[in-house]
């Protein structure tokens, strides 16, 4: 079974500690959401999870193997990343962007071949954006671009998807559709780690939630246990009510 584990992770930028004593574990099919206020270090945590930023202390195990022993290429075969912000330099076609996901599977001196294109097109179809494949990716809307990057992550054929605030730039409808897509992916046995600014969303798609505040996870567990007024008060410094609707779903309301 593929899984991911962080044990007592500590990360910092030039002596400023961003997070410490963070431990958690992800199983196959899990959706793990990290909540927390702006600038608390959620993105930095994700970068450490991906091995892009090394930990100062603690360790990360992927399938039992220590992350520090793995090359970028090894890691990218297991974990794929959907960034929150992206700077556009050249107007690549959507298919060419999605094909980049084949990078860990292609030798350094080779270029993508027909089979790689097939996999890329399959991911595009899975995301329902195959019709965009010849469009310039810099022309797409926020919702479409999010799906393009998700398609690229799927093309990577990794087991764990790491998404940085995937719903932040989406309109209300696209947020829900995106969460449903994530949910479907987890049913295909992918594990998902993401950050979010919407506590509500945890009730729709997550089975594990952590709240990050003051460099730590102040709580971690199921959405029902963690997304509670006390924790939300600590996270956002606001009195927030969690209300159960008639259909059983919960929502968060500021009072």
């Amino acid at each position: 079974m593929k899984y991911f584990e962080m044990i007592n992770g500590k990360g910092s930028y030039s002596k400023k500690i961003i997070f410490e004593n963070i431990s958690f574990k992800i199983e196959k099919g899990d959706i793990f959401t990290v909540l927390g206020p702006n600038g608390i270090g959620k993105t930095t945590l994700l970068k450490s999870i991906l091995g892009i930023k090394s930990l100062d202390k603690g360790e990360i195990l992927i399938n039992g193997e220590n992350l520090t022993n793995l090359s970028y290429k090894d890691i990218s075969k297991v974990m794929a990343y959907v960034p929150q912000v992206h700077s556009y330099t050249f107007p690549f076609k959507v298919i060419d962007v999605v094909l980049m996901g084949r990078s860990p599977h292609i030798n350094m001196i080779d270029t993508p071949e027909e089979n790689d294109v097939k996999i890329a097109e399959r991911s595009l179809k899975q995301m329902g954006i195959h019709h965009l494949k010849d469009k310039e990716y810099s022309y797409l809307s926020g919702g479409e671009i999010q799906l393009v990057f998700l398609a690229r992550a799927l093309t990577q054929e990794a087991n764990i998807l790491v998404l940085d605030e995937p719903t932040s730039h989406l309109d209300f409808g696209n947020q829900i559709r995106f969460l449903k897509t994530i949910d479907k992916l987890s049913k295909d046995n992918l594990a998902i780690i993401m950050t979010s600014h919407y506590p509500d969303h945890c009730f729709i798609s997550s089975d594990k939630v952590a709240i990050m505040q003051n460099k730590k996870f102040i709580d971690i567990g199921t959405p029902d246990d963690v997304v509670i007024p006390e924790n939300l008060k600590l996270a956002y410094d606001l009195d927030i009510n969690v209300i159960k609707l008639d259909n059983g779903r919960k929502i968060c309301v500021w009072e």
């Binding site: 970068k47 991906l50 091995g51 892009i52 090359s71 970028y72 290429k73 890691i75 990218s76 075969k77 974990m79 794929a80 990343y81 960034p83 992206h86 700077s87 330099t89 050249f90 962007v97 980049m100 996901g101 990078s103 860990p104 990577q156 790491v162």
Partner: peptide
């Protein structure tokens, strides 16, 4: 051209 972090996450040193 996509930037360092994305490139690393795509497996490039």
């Amino acid at each position: 051209a996509m930037g360092d972090e994305e490139s690393q996450a795509l497996g490039l040193d």
